[in-house]
Write a protein that binds this DNA or RNA. Structure first.
Lengths: 165, 165
DNA sequence: TTGGAATGTCAACAAGACTGACATATTATT
DNA sequence: AATAATATGTCAGTCTTGTTGACATTCCAA
């Protein structure tokens, strides 16, 4: 069962040790990935959950609560708490849908956009530095592996967001 | 400042849109990355924090609490709560250090190893499937980008663990 | 012997996830 | 027109995992 017992049959890059290193790289890299926005958010009363909501509202202006729930994969109670504070603080605007008036269409206010820019600038800066350091071929590989790691439903959502832009 | 305003100067793969897609890919992929262990852990009274502790104890048997604190980047109180339950449940053994008896040397018990295997098998299976789907060149690029994304201290720890194996 | 380091523990707290129950509009179906 | 389903919001309670701050113990080293 364990790959290390049949190294003759499968290539080195699929060995348990290589996979384990990939797992640890993912762990440490994700820490770096979130650290810059986290630092900014910590100075306000916000956390990672607020960042995620802001990001995807910025990405798909006019999105509904339900759509956001699907993308973020949390409960409506959890999301609602975050949205409530963002709306109260004037970062997010919630308008009744014109076609289906049960829906709430979410958009960022000017203030919300300002924070979104601040957060994504920080996150992109790290990403850009990493991309520049390794070059386009490595970046292409990076993107391919990440996509292959996603659950199929997540992959669909990922593509849907990409293509709607 | 925003890269989208000087697309003529910098390559496409460093555009804000490409960086944004990388950020979202990272977000969705990390969800997949943690989902299999999370599912297993949810059936017991454990969470991701327990998984992380178990992983790095398995990786560096006889490691100290302090070393684990450095790797995991949490407070000792937080780690201690997790370790306490793991020790009580007989998954982790804590022995007084022989050289410096203030230290606690942490190892997995047989039961601990069994759980670690279950968790890492699940996580490696996803990793292996992804790796197989994209091939060794993409994997190499993936690893390069992840490493470039880490904070320098994290990169050191990552290498230290790799090389001690 | 004294100071500092490593560890453990107690208490209190907060973010952010969860479940379950229930309310209110609105739309769709019968 | 009545009923069912959908979208959203809210209240209450729980859990995990993180945080601070305070304090005790043990042990090494100057």
């Amino acid at each position: 069962m364990a790959n290390s017992q049949r190294t003759g049959e499968s290539p080195l890059y699929l060995s348990d040790e290589q996979l384990r290193q990939g797992i640890e790289a993912m762990f440490f890299a994700y820490r770096g990935f979130t650290s810059d926005p986290d630092r900014i958010l910590a100075t306000m009363a916000y956390g990672r959950a607020h960042h995620r909501a802001i990001h995807f509202i910025a990405r798909s202006p006019g999105t509904t609560v339900n759509n956001l729930l699907n993308i973020l994969g949390v409960t409506k109670q959890s999301l609602n708490r975050v949205l409530r504070t963002l709306i109260q603080d004037g970062l997010v605007e919630s308008r009744q849908g014109s076609v289906d008036r049960r829906e709430r269409r979410l958009t960022l206010t000017e203030e919300g956009h300002a924070l979104e820019q601040q957060l994504s600038n920080a996150q992109r800066a790290r990403m850009r530095t990493a991309y520049e350091a390794v070059g386009p071929e490595s970046v292409a590989g990076f993107r391919r592996v990440l996509e292959a790691m996603m659950d199929p439903e997540m992959r669909h959502k990922y593509h849907a967001i990409k293509e709607s832009e």
